[in-house]
Design a protein around this nucleic acid. Structure first.
Lengths: 338, 338
DNA sequence: ATGAAAGCGCTAACAG
DNA sequence: CTGTTAGCGCTTTCAT
């Protein structure tokens, strides 16, 4: 039952079968200039018959792998699905394919290993790598960063309008009559040394709105590394305050879900409003019914892929794109108890 | 502001810098036999100084890319995260990396493009490709199929114990006193021409249990292609029957979530029990609280990766691994109304 | 319009 | 223990 790995069909095999040179076959498969209809026909017939498929490795060594790498921080994040979907849709009619690289550990190494020749370009959702390092990497391979409010030289960015999104949440909560509004965010967002991530912007907007309303910000940080526990404890701390918040604005839906669980565990469901961010699919579930900011993840993914393709076609000036947001109001936010 | 793509550092640069041959460098980076400590030190210093990273393309052309491809049908599926996590964990201490290939369209082409030299081996979650075709592909590249009850020659399989899992659900529901139990599954599962997927096994077990209890199976099929709508309508059809089921056993959690929404929409929450399969993270959320079968997705992913590594190290006999299941009972299943 | 030939960066086989 | 050499499969000038 031992298996002999079949040697793959190479361009030489096709050339021999079609009675032409390898260069000719290469031209045909790349739709390059200078092929007679007759030759094209014969070559295509041979390709079909032998079931030839070009080796990605060999192509990559010579130039392009026709693969775009999409680096994503943690696959579980529901928001990522939207981005992946948008990116794959955007390359659907091109010879390019999207491959995903889950950043299990440090994002630096995931990005580097992508850059090691596996892909022609990189789309990355990496809040924690710092801009100078990225500039350096961008010298080797085209990069589009998602969700970074950087001011880059060598790479492109696609971001949501985080200020507007966070602002919309705050306005909504104020309009409902809330005053004691807490914000629950990720550690990275309160560390000033960090690059400007979406969460940094959301926190800033939250602070600004609270200040403008003459209110003291109530910020709690959930250490995401602790998993659900961190968020759950942060929620508990908020609810245990002498004057607990009447509304909690969570940095994103995954946090909001756990906050919701915490509020339910405290038996205060319906009493404490909760808003999220990303409008992931579960937010619309009637049993969750979470008010959230839709920032068009699919659109972001598609834009990023398109911009990367432009780079591959030769664009060298940087581009920055911002997608708009829309607040999706649902049942998880209501007026505070009188 | 035009950017000059930096030429990458190659093995030759390192060799020159260290004053040794390229072969020597190659040996060092592969920890191969026959390197003096002195040479190793010099080479490693040069690598460090120049920031050398081996080209994946060149390596792949010569043999191995040190990449494992994980093909997944639709990224949104919550169950997939567990598999990805397990697989990446399993390769963490090896030179291998996991890359994900989302099967946006037909799975055949995704698998083929993975086999085109991008990866050294493939883990696939593709219920719809047929066994002979897989055998063919397996001749070119090692493959481990997840969730297939095939009897393969050239590839390995990792499956959950779907019969036991489905049986446990049925026993649980019977024990609660349910008799009119419906099953809501995917189209593929009722098409006999299809390969033996987990859903086929679950349906069979469901049928067997209903028959053994002297009951008529009530099966509704949700066309997943229709998205949520299909499941929602199927749920509505079930609830609209003259004698509606008192419990619905959904083929997996993503279906169960929509069923739950449908039951809620019909105002029959708590009246109609719902059970799912996969025990995805959202199932434990207190607002969802879904009874579900845990089939250890992470364990499956880890097993699959390990088996693939074995293949790459030379194993040629096939292996099949089955992971056990455990029913996680939660609030979504309770006794029927009297 | 077609083909010959060089070479991308690396590894494996062999020679020294 | 170390270096030389010959490709892996493809694309790309450059002749013809």
């Amino acid at each position: 039952m031992s298996i002999t790995r079949g040697r793959a069909v190479t361009i030489s095999d096709v050339a021999t079968a079609a009675g032409v040179s390898r260069a000719a076959v290469s031209k045909v498969i790349r739709n390059a200039y200078g092929v007679s209809p007759g030759m094209r026909r014969r070559v295509e017939a041979a390709i079909e018959e032998l079931g030839y498929r070009p080796s990605v490795a060999a192509r990559a060594l010579r130039g392009s792998s026709y693969r775009l790498g999409l680096e994503i921080p943690y696959v579980s994040a529901r928001f990522m699905s939207q981005i992946v979907e948008g990116a794959t849709r955007a390359v659907a009619d091109t010879p390019y394919q999207v491959v995903l690289a889950p950043a299990d550990g440090p994002e630096y190494s995931t990005l580097e290993s992508l850059a090691d020749g596996l892909v022609d370009g990189i789309i990355a959702v990496s809040p924690r790598v710092d801009p100078p390092w990225l500039e350096e990497l961008a010298r080797r391979v085209p990069i589009v960063m998602l969700g970074r409010h950087d001011d880059p030289q060598g790479y492109d960015t696609v971001v949501g309008d985080d200020a507007a999104g966070a602002g919309a949440v705050m306005e909504h909560l104020f309009a409902l009559g809330h005053r004691r509004i807490a914000h629950l965010t990720e550690p990275e967002a309160v560390n000033v040394a960090t690059p400007v991530t979406p969460h940094v912007v959301r926190v800033a907007e939250y602070r600004a709105r609270m200040a403008a309303a003459g209110l003291e910000p109530i910020i709690e940080v959930a250490r995401w590394e602790d998993g659900d526990t961190g968020v759950r404890e942060a929620t508990a701390r908020l609810l245990a305050r002498p004057s607990p918040p009447t509304a909690i604005f969570a940095g994103h839906d995954d946090i909001a879900l756990i906050v919701l669980a915490g509020v339910a565990a405290a038996g205060r469901l319906g009493e404490v409003s909760v808003a999220g961010y990303d409008n992931t699919d579960i937010a619309q579930h009637p049993l969750i019914d979470l008010t959230s900011v839709d920032q068009q993840g699919a659109e972001m993914g598609a834009q990023a892929a398109t911009m990367l393709l432009e780079r591959l076609r030769g664009r060298t000036e940087r581009r920055q794109h911002m997608v708009s947001t829309r607040l999706q109001v649902r049942g998880s936010t209501r007026p505070p108890l009188p």
